[in-house]
Computed example of a mutant assay.
Amino acid sequence: MLQFLWVIFPYLMLTIFIVGHIYRYNVDQLSWTAKSSEFLEKKHLKWGSMLFHIGILFVFVGHVGGLLIPKSLMESLGVSESMYHAGAVYGGGLAGIITLLGILILLNRRLTNKRVRLTSDTSDLITVILIFLIILIGIYNTLIGNRLHPHFDYRETISPWFRGLLTFVPDPSLMKGVPLGFQLHILISFALIGIWPFTRLVHVWSVPLSYFKRRYIIYRKRAS
């Protein structure tokens, strides 16, 4: 079971992620869109989207630092265990709460606004629910899980396991004693990665950089 959960399943989801994007881009580019529903409802979308995207940026940076930078390197740079823990709890907790508020607004909008709900397909609902669960469990791990398991250090278990995935030498035994909340957070995240190519999340890779260098569009009134 350890081999499946912490080696086979992650690589399977990553393979689907890569192959799925290539397939969809080459076969169905017309669906490569965020399918904006701003014209259906704007107020809640504005606040929900703003909070979610601001929060998720800080969450992403925190995860990169915690998973990819070894504990020994952090300590050699003068970042002690207590300093790192304080930053993870207070900074990560705040970023998580901001992200959670954003996704709650977006989830409520998608479920309760009739016009938005009618334009949503199954993948939209699954995506937003998975993101909500990932964020909720992540906040639980940060604010509560760490207190329930004070001797657990994910930088000595999850982080080296994750780096092993990236270098193709994963050690599933590192995940054996990881608390359930952290395990669920990881597994649901990989599930989201697996369905990513088949949802509107593909719009993340379509950054409109050409917009900043395009010529202005001039509108002139037609002579009567």
Rank of each mutant, 00 (worst) to 15 (best):
V204S: 08
G138P: 04
S36R: 05
H151T: 13
S72N: 13
H151G: 06
Y154L: 15
L166Y: 10
I188M: 13
L94D: 02
A88D: 02
V207G: 01
L133F: 11
G78W: 00
L184Q: 15
K71N: 07
F168L: 14
K213D: 01
L104H: 00
M1C: 06
I188W: 11
T142H: 04
I105Y: 00
N113E: 05
H63I: 08
A34C: 09
F4G: 00
E75W: 01
L94K: 03
F60G: 09
G55S: 09
F58P: 02
N108M: 09
S173L: 14
E81Y: 02
I8S: 00
T142Y: 04
F39G: 04
Y11I: 07
F152A: 03
F39K: 12
Y25I: 09
L143M: 13
F190K: 09
S123W: 14
D171V: 14
L40H: 02
M13T: 03
L148I: 09
D171I: 12
I195Q: 11
P160W: 11
T122P: 04
H149E: 12
S31H: 05
I105S: 01
R117H: 07
I131N: 08
D171Y: 09
K114C: 02
K176R: 15
H21M: 12
V202P: 01
S82Q: 05
K213G: 03
E81V: 00
G20N: 11
S210E: 03
N113A: 04
T33W: 05
R24D: 08
L94E: 01
M13I: 03
I97Q: 01
I98H: 02
N146A: 10
H44K: 06
F152N: 03
K35C: 03
W161K: 08
S37L: 07
V116Y: 12
W47D: 01
Y140A: 13
I18M: 14
A34D: 11
I126Y: 12
G181C: 15
R163I: 14
F9K: 03
Q29R: 08
G145A: 10
L51A: 04
L133Q: 08
H151E: 13
L209P: 00
I139H: 04
